[in-house]
Design a protein around this nucleic acid. Structure first.
Lengths: 344, 344
DNA sequence: ACAATTAATGCAAGCGGTTGCACGGGTGTC
DNA sequence: GACACCCGTGCAACCGCTTGCATTAATTGT
């Protein structure tokens, strides 16, 4: 079938252990022998079987990456960055899609546990206790969730939500709706917490609508709720919902930004291309993917690493937000980035 | 470290082979013993190590999925469908991104070969000879490429391109540009072949511009070439390029569809949401992902399966196409699907 | 009642590697 | 010239699991 270490040993007239060392501990083998072995290996097309190696070394050179929905435009840049970074370190990457189902998350982590060096869970929907439990079974890094004791990469959406609400109140909006995300989303809770506090500080009223599925449809279907609440501005859990909402508002006869201002979160590719172009809070998705992989791979060295990496977000003002009702000056910049701050 | 078959054996007072059979050949073990073993396994949290099993059975229950660019919106629905279908058959899926680099495709296939039951290569950029070579080293299914002897799932873009060009000529366009895709793309060649033939039959002139990177930027940068060629209509290799092109045309002062009609291919989510909504050839991406996985898993049974599955495409007329120059009747349907035919 | 099946389990080899240990021979030291 | 030492290699056990074969006990046929 496939060419093994034994075939190479036979061809080059040495013991299999020497062949093994040629690949995994070259400094232990005589240079002449080594080159002979390498030549034979090359000629036979030998490739070490990583699974077999893993059996004894415990290192698989694989990583698991779990996301809620591959088709959600938020994830592909993260997956791409993670994959690229992983392969830079000679690792392969399993991708699993849980369809926003917490039970599936658990199942997949367990199923993958034995054949990976660690698992990245992006935007987990499980509860903290379960995540802690799982992290005892396999090295875990979590993206967009903070749990003490679990290494994590989080986007600072609280700060992003603050910038968003401040932008809206500065534009004169006093009745703001918040479209929350899926149940179990830490990000959604953070946004809500921060948005609520910021709105109160800005003397604006904040109506929370949700939870909602984090999709275009999720935004589309609540358009009427938004209008009924009398909101003149909306912050959506993500861009996809914001875009769906804009469609829904349009169908209901409301114009964006003239009648209602809308802000999304994520800054997915789509947001630059829809009309009106979406004002949004940009999250550093690719950077998060890279950082999470690095953190996972470092995990092995400094055991029990428990670092939390916070990535800053920034408000990108485009065309879906405008001045609120009453005698206020219109805010109408082109496509300006307002950089946000950093948390520890 | 981790609980193994031995731990379960000790706990339930049987030999490890009995534990093994409890999981992989339940009918060979006494029902009483079996339930006792299962109880112990459950209690200890035993999970079989698939890599170890694969070492001896040769079946890994893993699949490799190789795409040119995860962040290209064409791929995520395919990946999602493939992953879902794979897990339905209890398989996990490695995802690799080759950045449109043929050399990387080869490297990744080889690297993955030992730890998967087969590899799915989507829209490969390698040459046929190399693919044939690789298919001798690991079961392969190819998406969007036809090679005799290699099982494949292809979208019938030739037929889609024909419908697209016919739509344009019917609208009165006589000078049409074709934005071709990346070098090495079978799909691009198919489109070109079919578009050329259809244009000739429709007494229209077809100018081929490219090859181009299959991205928004790829379309954006050739807007001037399109105008210089005097084209009043354009068929782009994919929606992303079409959308970029529309942006480019807009910057150059040309309006879509009034001055130039644009058709894309793929019908990615974006295309419904940009303004103008994009007329495009819809490809059944998710179906292709599912079918490819099924084909790969069936591959094992009827050895040397060499089936080619053709999936039909259809023209979706939206707002980016309109009547050409001169005294022609305007074609202006809303959002109509014109179903295409099927190939074998 | 006894040979012949059959069912359930144990034994041990082996999948493709890695790795601690032992061994042989060449150097350096005094 | 005897001793210690190091370098390069072979030996064999083992990682977690499967599986052909042997073994034993229970069942069946006549």
């Amino acid at each position: 079938m496939s060419v093994t270490i034994r075939d190479v040993a036979r061809a080059s007239g040495v013991h299999i252990s020497t062949v093994s060392r040629t690949f995994s501990a070259p400094h232990l083998v005589n240079p002449n022998t080594r080159s002979r072995v390498l030549a034979c290996a090359e000629e036979l097309g030998y490739r070490p079987n990583r699974a077999a190696r893993a059996l004894i070394t415990g290192r698989t050179y694989n990583i698991g990456l779990i996301v809620a929905d591959i088709a959600n435009p938020f994830f592909p840049p993260l997956i791409k960055a993670a994959e690229s970074q992983a392969r830079k370190h000679d690792h392969h990457i399993f991708v699993a899609d849980t369809n926003e189902d917490p039970a599936l998350e658990e199942e997949v982590v367990r199923a993958l546990a034995k054949q990976v060096d660690g698992v990245l869970i992006c935007s987990p929907r499980m509860n903290n206790a379960l995540i802690e439990q799982l992290s005892r079974e396999v090295p875990l890094v979590v993206v967009n969730r903070q749990i003490t004791g679990i290494p994590a990469v989080v986007m600072d959406v609280a700060q992003g939500a603050r910038l968003a609400i401040e932008h809206l109140t500065a534009c004169g909006h006093r009745t703001i709706a918040l479209l929350s995300g899926p149940r179990g989303s830490w990000t959604s809770r953070e946004i809500r917490r921060s948005a609520t506090a910021t709105a109160r500080a800005g003397h604006a009223e904040l109506t929370v609508i949700g939870p909602n599925p984090p999709t275009e449809v999720g935004g589309l279907t609540v358009a009427e709720d938004v209008l009924r609440a009398g909101a003149t501005a909306v912050l959506a859990y993500n861009d996809l919902m914001a875009i769906g909402l804009i469609e829904g508002l349009f169908s209901a006869g409301a114009r964006v930004p003239e009648d209602v201002s809308v802000i999304g979160i994520d800054d997915i590719m789509l947001s630059r291309l829809t009309r009106p172009k979406l004002t949004t809070v940009a999250t550093p998705t690719a950077a998060a993917g890279r950082a999470a992989v690095d953190m996972l791979l470092a995990h092995g060295d400094d055991r029990r690493s428990t670092a939390h990496l916070h990535l800053q977000t920034e408000l990108v003002i485009r065309d879906s937000t405008g001045s609120g009702p009453g005698p206020h000056s219109p805010a109408d910049p082109g496509d300006v980035n307002v950089p946000g701050g950093v948390a520890s």
